[in-house]
Nucleic acid binder design. Structure first.
Length: 304
DNA sequence: TATCCAAGGTAAGTT
DNA sequence: AACTTACCTTGGATA
């Protein structure tokens, strides 16, 4: 076992709970089993764990991390320092990003509630699959689906005497039957997951192929996966592939557009996307979207 | 306790 | 190209 700490003094503000429980990542779990049980909560000192895929570091690598005030403590089967900095986007200059946001009451309120929340930089294939699963689903159930996929088809790893499961590889998911996937409560998403996994497994396409395309070309390219429309493509671009300008037009942000930025509703996804992107600040519009999403989704009155 | 509704949408068919 | 409709499942709201 390896372990270490990461001081957050030079990183800037960071909040592990809101980062991992804001509905952007479905690759982590909590040791106490309370993942996504308290929507909108911040500041938890619980241990969170994940298994970094083989495709990233050459072997399935267990990592767990917790936050105590101004530092992160981690334990892992590898030296996980650099991987954690990447996964949790500790390299982002959050002050500069927030500085780029427009003045807007709901956004200001979101920044107050979730001080230190960052985007994640999740591995591409699990992100692709989890957001294919996200269609018409609640956040907690999306997380459950990914847990079931890992336990049913993922490679098991042991750490500190306990067993954990990596997210399935493209090959492992492609060889799952549709009925097996439906039995995991994926519903009509089952064939989408299976077919998109097969596309990656066969080498026909890979989500990382779009990295060097322009943003809109990358979004269009990702929609060639089965079960991936423009919204899911934006989620993969934002939460995994470093396109921080991507603004997923989900039900919450559409509601926000209708209530707060009605001039940005241009009918089509592409045109509305351009308008809201400009309104939220072209470079980091996706960061602003995620603050708004988490705030509106966990705010009972949803007025501010 | 029964029924209804919406949940981080997409694909396929129509106009 | 814009507009419908079907699609699995279930927790929570409503009657």
């Amino acid at each position: 076992m390896e372990s270490g700490t990461i001081s957050l003094e030079r990183v800037g503000s960071f909040d592990l709970q809101s980062t991992l429980e804001s509905g952007q990542s479905y690759t982590w779990d909590r040791a106490d089993g309370r993942m996504y049980e308290r929507p909108g909560a911040v500041g938890s000192t619980a241990w969170y764990h994940t298994v970094i895929p083989r495709s990233v570091v050459g072997t399935e690598a267990f990592v767990r991390v917790r936050q105590t005030d101004d530092r992160l403590e981690w334990e892992s089967s590898i030296d996980a320092h650099d991987e954690l900095c990447a996964l949790l986007r500790l390299d982002d200059d959050l002050d500069a990003i927030i500085e780029s946001f427009p003045e807007e009451p709901a956004l200001s309120r979101a920044l107050e509630r979730f001080d230190g929340m960052r985007l994640v930089r999740d591995p591409p294939f699990p992100t692709l699959i989890s957001f294919i699963c996200s269609a018409q689903m609640r956040v907690s159930r999306i997380h459950q689906m990914q847990r079931r996929l890992a336990e049913s088809f993922g490679t098991s790893v042991t750490f500190d005497g306990a067993t954990y499961h990596a997210f399935p590889t493209p090959e492992q998911l492609a060889s799952a039957s549709e009925s097996a996937l439906r039995s995991l409560k994926l519903g009509y998403r089952a064939p989408y997951v299976r077919e998109s996994a097969a596309m990656v497994a066969s080498g026909t396409r890979d989500p990382t192929d779009v990295q060097n395309l322009s943003y809109e070309a990358a979004r269009r390219s990702l929609t060639e996966f089965v079960g991936v429309g423009e919204k899911v493509a934006d989620c993969v671009l934002l939460f995994s592939l470093d396109f921080l300008e991507a603004v997923p037009l989900d039900t919450w942000i559409r509601r926000a557009i209708a209530d707060r930025f009605p001039d940005c509703d241009r009918g089509s996804y592409a045109e509305t996307s351009r308008a809201i992107r400009t309104r939220l600040g072209d470079t980091y519009a996706g960061y602003a979207q995620t603050y708004l999403f988490h705030h509106l989704r966990t705010n009972e009155t949803a007025s501010v």
